[in-house]
């Protein structure tokens, strides 16, 4: 029984069957990659996991609880953090403030009216945020406006924000999309470090095979909204069905 269990999920947009009978099981403390050609339904599946979309049929269970019908913030409070394809950070706030907000959310829940306290006096939270910035190698950018960070740093910050909440499941939506090779390699190293040092489950949607094969323990190949095959990276590499559906274009 995995930490994330997707069973019989269907999603239809008008005449388009975006997801057809998707079953997926993500084991705890593993890195599970979901790959597939454009339009395979990867992002739709991800959106069904985080509460942005509700599947027409089927169930999505996280740690034995259904996530269906819950708002994104409730699902996050259950322990799922999401990294977006283009980094979503609080652009008008400083790097430090960006890092503090998720820690506040973890401690205080979805809403708290702490209007008469002062941010700087929240010692625990300031310390935790500084620690995480240290870990992300961003301590020197503490007081910068986060909108002025480089693309790679924005990605680092976003991953750090998610990790600061100590999520049990980290969802990554094409974390290296549009990145230069050097930035991609940095991100891979960062994710490897996270995988090795933390008790965390990672589900990653990715286009870049280099990223997938250097990180994943299990791979699910999605084609036309349906899982084609699920296996270890070595077997996926050699699987003729996968080559035909996906790798065939480039390999």
């Amino acid at each position: 029984m995995g930490i994330l269990e997707v069973k019989g999920v269907n999603k239809r947009f008008g005449g388009l069957q975006a997801l057809g009978d998707v079953n997926l099981s993500v084991k705890e403390n593993s890195v599970h990659a979901i790959i597939g050609p454009n339009g395979a339904g990867k992002s739709t599946l991800l959106n069904c996991l985080v509460g942005k979309l509700i599947p027409d049929t089927g169930s999505v269970m996280f740690d034995g609880q259904s996530v269906l019908g819950r708002a994104p913030f409730e699902i996050n409070q259950m322990g799922i953090s999401r990294v977006f394809q283009t980094p979503e950070i609080f652009g008008e706030l400083t790097v430090m403030e960006n890092m503090m907000i998720p820690i506040f959310a973890k401690r205080d829940g979805a809403f708290r009216m702490h209007a008469y306290e002062t941010v700087q006096n929240e010692k625990q939270i300031v310390e935790a945020a500084e620690e995480m910035l240290e870990e992300m190698n961003m301590a020197d950018k503490r007081d910068m406006n986060s909108a002025s960070l480089s693309r790679g740093d924005k990605r680092r910050l976003e991953i750090g924000m998610c990790l600061s909440q100590q999520p049990r499941l980290l969802l990554l939506d094409e974390p290296t999309a549009g990145m230069a090779r050097a930035d991609t390699n940095n991100t891979i190293d960062l994710l490897k470090q996270i995988r090795d040092e933390r008790d965390i489950t990672i589900a990653i949607i990715e286009h870049d095979m280099h990223v997938v094969f250097s990180l994943a323990d299990r791979i699910t190949v999605l084609a036309q909204g349906t899982p084609l095959v699920e296996d270890s990276p070595e077997n996926i590499r050699g699987n003729p069905k996968v080559r035909e559906a996906y790798l065939g274009e480039s390999a």
Partner: peptide, 18 residues
Amino acid sequence: MMLRAVKSNQQRMNYTGL
């Protein structure tokens, strides 16, 4: 700070558990 977060990026806010 949360109110400024609302102005800055509501999407990120909702996916941060707020």
